[in-house]
């Protein structure tokens, strides 16, 4: 279904940028900041033991290219934040990691994305177990219009993880505890999931995701619809979850990226501009575009 392009490892970390003068970080209107297919990511996109290894990933929506030649590794148990201005392709890129883009008709992906060395866009890869391994939390809390219990139990049920009701009860309780929601909902597990507040709904969605014991959790702006207090709770939760899970989070809030992530990737117009340790990105970024973005000169 999807062609896997031969892996071209022409991306090397820590290369100076020939394509843009650092004194002129921002492109003039109408002027392209760099040639379309000739750019290199600065920083350290690669790690030794990669959970996810992406090489030369391109994503097209029909004629429009949303992600351009992105190469990036995600290490086990790390939290990687993806930041960048709207429309920079970070959400699209994230949705490639569990093939959620398959549901979009005109979407086409090329390049190589490997999870533990397995090519996920290979025809041999079954998306159902893939999505059980790589869970996803969405921008808007989207609990099913069912009870809180049913929301969490749905994943284990369809994957046949448990046979007995008591085991299911246990999974539901553990998941809700890990999502920090148990104490708030333990007395009303039969209440509809939609009756919770926005922040609780999002934590319910996280509980639903971890109920199937994924290895990786993808979060697509999980706090953009929440108030600061609910956001703080989710961020706390991300920190706790990072002990057991690999987390990739797309966010519009640079403070959030700075607070929760170990590494930060900066995307611009579909290109991965810079990947570095979070602290470095927010203090001494290597690339002028990154600097311009984090200092609020555009975004």
């Amino acid at each position: 279904m999807h062609d896997i392009l031969e892996h071209k490892s022409r991306v090397s970390p820590k290369v100076d940028l020939p394509f843009m003068a650092p004194t002129h970080p921002i492109a003039e209107p109408g002027q392209r900041p760099f040639a379309a297919d000739d750019y290199q990511t600065v920083g350290s996109p690669f790690v030794d033991k990669a959970k996810f290894a992406m090489r030369d990933v391109n994503v097209f929506y029909g004629e429009k290219q949303a992600v351009v030649n992105v190469s990036l590794d995600i290490a086990e148990n790390e939290v990687i934040a993806m930041i960048g201005p709207s429309g920079c392709g970070k959400s699209t890129f994230l949705r490639c990691l569990n093939r959620m883009n398959d549901t979009i008709e005109a979407c086409r992906v090329s390049g190589s994305i490997q999870l533990d060395g397995q090519e996920i866009y290979s025809s041999k890869m079954d998306v159902v177990p893939l999505r059980a391994r790589v869970g996803m939390v969405f921008q808007k809390p989207n609990p099913f219009p069912k009870s809180i219990y049913e929301n969490v139990a749905y994943g284990p049920k369809i994957h046949g993880l448990v046979n007995r009701r008591v085991d299911l009860d246990e999974i539901v309780e553990t998941s809700l505890r890990r999502a920090g929601l148990w104490d708030e909902v333990k007395d009303r597990l039969d209440a509809p999931g939609t009756s919770l507040s926005g922040g609780q709904q999002q934590r319910l969605c996280i509980a639903r995701t971890i109920a199937v014991s994924p290895e990786v959790i993808l979060m697509d702006e999980p706090c953009s619809a929440l108030d600061p207090i609910a956001t703080a709770k989710i961020e706390e939760l991300i920190a706790e979850l990072s002990e057991n899970y690999t987390i990739a989070i797309v966010t519009h809030s640079m403070q959030q990226a700075a607070r929760v992530s170990h590494r930060t990737a900066y995307f611009h117009l579909g290109k991965l501009i810079e990947v570095n340790d979070t602290q470095k990105v927010f203090t001494t970024p290597d690339h002028p575009l990154t600097e311009a973005y984090i200092t609020g000169r555009f975004g």
Binding site: T103, R131, A132, N142, Y154, I158
Partner: peptide, 23 residues
């Protein structure tokens, strides 16, 4: 049917038929 519900079901690994029948 809101796409967010489909996303939610697909996102935890429901097959297409499960998404259709359950949601």
């Amino acid at each position: 049917v809101p796409p967010s519900i489909r996303d939610a079901a697909f996102g935890i690994g429901a097959s297409k038929m499960q998404v259709i029948l359950h949601h």
